[in-house]
Each structure stands twice: as C-alpha cells, then as structure tokens.
Write a protein that binds this DNA or RNA. Structure first.
Lengths: 324, 324
DNA sequence: TTGTACGCGTTATCAG
DNA sequence: CTGATAACGCGTACAA
C-alpha cells in the first residue's frame, strides 16, 4: 500500500481509511495528508476480497431498455432507491437483464459483485434470479409469483385499490363496467384484476368484460378496441395502469365516446400520464418512490443482518379528477 | 478453489474457466463437470485483483433521475451501448452521479470497479470525472468543454445540422427566424445555436431572436413565451430539441398561431416527441443509438489498447414532416 | 495504540 | 500440457 510510504504501517492506514476508533490523531493526520497527495483510492476488489463485502447493491431490470425508460414507474422507483442509498455507504448499480443473457446476470450476481439485489417488474417466467435468492439477499417489488415462499418483498395494496376504484364507478351509477387488465404473469396485473372482480361480485354484476394489456399505452389502445368490438354496452372502465388509460382514451375519442359522459374511467398509477390526459384521469395513487425507498431499506437491513419485515404493504388512495 | 477437489490443480481450473488453448480435453471435461456440480461461479473480486481488470464499464449519468428517465435521448443511447456491449464480455453498470456525491462517483470510478467509463450529458461545470480521465479510459458523448484536450468522444454534427434546418426555413421564405437554444454549458446547445447563427449570417439576416431552455418541454414553453413577449415578428423557428418543440407548440397554440402557417417550425432530435406532435415535427434526425454503440466500441478498444479514432462525428439528415 | 503476519480466490510466471 | 508458487491490495487477529 503506497500510502504507507508516508509514515506508518499499512495496518494503520487501513484503520484510518475505515476510521476505526483509537488511532493517534497526529499519525491519522499524516496518513490523511499522504492519501490526499497521492490521490489514493482504496481498491474495492482487494477490499471486498478481504472483507467479503462489496458495498454495492444492484437493481435488476428484467425489461427491454425502451420499456424501462418509457414507463414512469421505473423512474420513480429508482428515485426512491437512489434516495435512500445516498444516505448509506452503498453504491447503486443497475443491470438490464434483457440485454445480457440470463446467465450473464446470474454470474454477475453470484460473482461477488454485489452484496444484494433489488428486482422490479419480474414476470413469472423469468427466473434469472431464482437460484440466486438462496445465496444473496434479494428484495422484490411486488409479490414474487414463483420461487421460495420466504422471499422478501414490498408491494402496494393492488387488490383493495382496484376494488375501491371499481366501487367509485359503481357509486357513479355505472353498471356495465369493463376493465383493461395488466399482464397476468405479474402480481400487479393479477391483483388489480382480482380487485375489480371482487367489487363487481359484491355488487352482483357481470365481470366478463375483460381485456389484457402489458401496461403500455399501445396495448391499452388495442385492448380498448377489442372491448368495443365485442358490442356489449360499456359505461364504466377500470384500467390497470395510467399508461394504458392513455391508449384507451384515444380509442374512445375516435369512437366519439365522451369521458366521463358515455364512459367513466378510473385508472391505476398516479404519474405524468394520469395528469396530462384530458379529462385528467381519476386514478388510484400509490407511493412508488416510497416503494423504492422501502425496498432499499429492507435490502440494506437484510445485508447487515438486522431484523426486517419480510413483506411490506403500502396503501393506496383515490385521486378524484375529471374522468369519473 | 473448491473445483480443484475434482481432479486437478487450481491453475488448470483457471485455464479451463478462461478457456485457454491447450488443455487436455479429458481433464477439461472433468473440471467442467465439477463446476456444474458445485454450481461454481468465479469470484470477480479475486479475479480482478489478480488480473487488474474488471470486465465492467460504467455509464455516468450526471442528471437527475427524472430527467434521465424522461428524455428519450437517454433510452436510445443506452440501447446502443447495451447492444454493443452484449456482444462483448463486458457488463454495463450505470451510476446516476446526481444522486451520490461527486466524490462517491470518483471513488467508484477510481476504486477499481470498472475498466472504463462512458459519460453522457456532461455540463461544463461538472467535473466529477475530470481527475478520472487521466487514470481511466473515458469516452464522452459530445465534445467535452473542459478538461484535457485529448479526450475521446463521439458527437453528431450539431452545427451543420442546425444550419441545414435553418436553411430550410429560409427556403420556405421565412425571414424573421427565432430559435429556442439549448443549455450553453453543453456542446450540443452551443453548436446548434452556432449553426442557426451561421445560416442567418450567410443570408444577411438578424440573429437576435434567441431564448434558452434546458431541452425539456417545460423550458421550451417558457422560452417560447419569452420570445413572443418581445413583440418582434416571428415567422420561422428553430428549436434545439424535439422536447422543447413540444413545449413551444402548446404556447403557439394558445396564442392562436398556426404551424406552419404563421410560424414554420424545425426541430432537432427525431424521437417520439417529434412524431407525436400535431403537425408532426420537421426535424433534424441524428443516430442516437449508433452514437451509443460507437461510444461503447471506442471505449472497449481503448481499454484493450487497440487503436481508435479520438473523435467520431456522426452525420445528420433532415426529416420533412408537417411543421415547415 | 501500533505493527506483523496471514488469508481472501484468482491469475501469471516459471519450472517440470 | 501441467502443477507449484508468487503476487494482487486490503482487512484483521494477534502480538508487542
């Protein structure tokens, strides 16, 4: 260790760098000066080899690049994660697992690159992280559909949020209520659909008006078109994401159906899409940034061996705007 | 090394893992079997400690999380980078340097975490990477405004693209041509403004109608408002980004000015914003994904000591749509 | 409080 | 073609 040339032994330098208690102040100063002069930065590889920890966590994004950078959800989650991590000594690293082979991702995770992993938007078929969760702390966004039952995760109350949204449509007097549901290989998609079903069942109404999308605007438009093509009357609509609502809007408009006059619409997600629509979308708000922060918090606790809740559930609220 | 328990010496295992030439096929098989059985993954820290290389490069994003995930530019660049890197043995890591302290970024870069860095959207004041470029291969997107003169970078022909765009407005008979320029602490902002100036100078026209934005839609709207508030007539407008054009559109609309009737508009960037506007934006197209791929290619060559062009310049083309 | 000595898992060198 | 063995740069008992 070069800095040892400035006075003391390498062990002492190590103590100073990791500001261990009880080091002679004067020597400490000398070491610090040397460090500054030599522009020295401890080698992380050596450190992690010796200490068995990397001080880095990674966010695994199992989606295409374009989806990740297009869906406002990711921006908010990451903001939450990065915000929490900024307070800690951990560095955040992201890996788009669609770009590399699943195997590359696995090698990365297991290769001692990180102390833990955060997984968002995982689909049930996707298990690049599956054999990982045994040997590395992992926290999921949303209830994992496969894998060990003991997984740690943070989720929002998708089902009750969706039920509340549907109840609003009912309270507006709507009786022919359709839904554009999310992907059924993700818990968010499944649970929101279940909430809609539950509300309709409770009201004794038909719940057959269902079409699916993948949360994107284009898929929302396509689903809306299929819904209308069925010919059955629709006066209320619950959409499982604000982005899909944007797509649905354009189709309703092209069919000369007024919102909320002809069709009252309630969405899920309170992002820029929701606010930008005309009329502004009445929607279920959920704290995405806090979701991210909470995931990071859970992961760090897990890594450091502190006790943590295995599952955290975040509440939702209904934002009343112009569409229902 | 555990796998050694399955027959041979650690050296041989190492050779197999890095499929070095000339290893006895039979022993190689035995080693591979052992690896599979033990679910063994080489420890990256140890490897990089011994080999002085990490097989990872990082993308430094010196912008806020929301900007990064909102501006389509980043998605495309990253797609290009990830696409190229997927063909190589390198892993891509990203760090949002706004979230951590500049010092944290520096330590990360210098701490032996990566073999090289890619920097996009750097501003002239931002020098977290400055003292880095001496000891680590770095490739910039756009001409760096400060720092060593020897920097490697990839850029698009901003100035000539802007001049061509402005020439189009002139050819449409417009004579009162304004511009909404980008930030003047980034080469893209500076060069696009220079191109607009050059075209007007060549035509002997006034080039005082300038307002600035930060490439975002909101800043474009604000700049448009300031431009109109000046009271001087405007019949042509060059906007340095499609996002700002979106903002300008809304302001023009609210002032009952028709595009292109009253004001012909040409933008820069051919992203989803450009295509989604009504009328669709006539704009300067530049190959963002290729920019990313080229950056990655340059960096890898740099790391591996192969000869590379210090600067790569990518051409632009004009996409004629409805706005001019 | 400080220094010594060893270990971390892998690659590289050099005999064999 | 293969096996010892020495680095790699740092943390950490343990001894001084």
């Amino acid at each position: 260790m070069v800095a040892a040339l400035a006075g003391v032994s390498r062990a002492t330098v190590s103590r100073v760098v990791n500001d261990s208690p009880s080091v002679d102040p004067q020597r400490a100063r000398a070491v610090r000066d040397a460090i500054a002069e030599l522009n020295y930065v401890p080698n992380r590889a050596a450190r992690s080899l010796a200490s068995r920890r990397t001080q880095a966590v990674t966010l695994v994004l199992p989606e295409s690049t374009s989806k990740v950078f297009t869906d406002p959800f990711f921006a908010s989650v990451i903001e939450g994660i990065a915000g929490y991590l900024a307070e800690t000594e951990y560095t955040l690293t992201m890996i788009l697992s669609s770009e590399s082979t699943p195997d590359k991702t696995r090698r990365y995770l297991l290769g001692g690159n990180v102390d833990g992993a955060l997984v968002v938007s995982h689909h049930s078929g996707d298990d690049s992280w599956a054999r990982v969760s045994g040997s590395l702390p992992v926290v999921f966004a949303g209830r994992p559909l496969v894998g060990e039952a003991g997984s740690h995760y943070v989720e929002v109350e998708n089902e009750s949020g969706a039920a509340t949204a549907t109840d609003l449509l009912l309270s507006r007097g709507r009786r022919n209520i359709a839904t554009i549901a999310g992907p059924q290989d993700m818990s968010a998609g499944i649970d929101r659909l279940a909430g809609w079903r539950r509300a309709l069942a409770r009201a004794g109404l038909d719940s057959s008006r269902v079409e699916f999308g993948d949360f994107s605007p284009a898929s929302g438009a396509a689903a809306m078109r299929r819904l209308l093509a069925r010919g059955a009357p629709i006066d209320g609509l619950f959409v499982a994401s604000a982005q899909m609502a944007a797509g649905a809007y354009s189709v309703l408009e092209s069919h000369s159906l007024r919102i909320p006059g002809d069709v009252a619409v309630v969405g899920f997600d309170d992002d820029e899409f929701a606010a930008a629509l005309t009329p502004a979308l009445t929607t279920v708000h959920h704290p995405v940034t806090r979701l991210g922060a909470r995931m990071a918090e859970t992961l760090v606790a897990l890594i450091e061996g502190r006790p943590v809740e295995r599952v955290t559930r975040l509440g939702t609220s209904l934002i009343l705007r112009g569409s229902a």
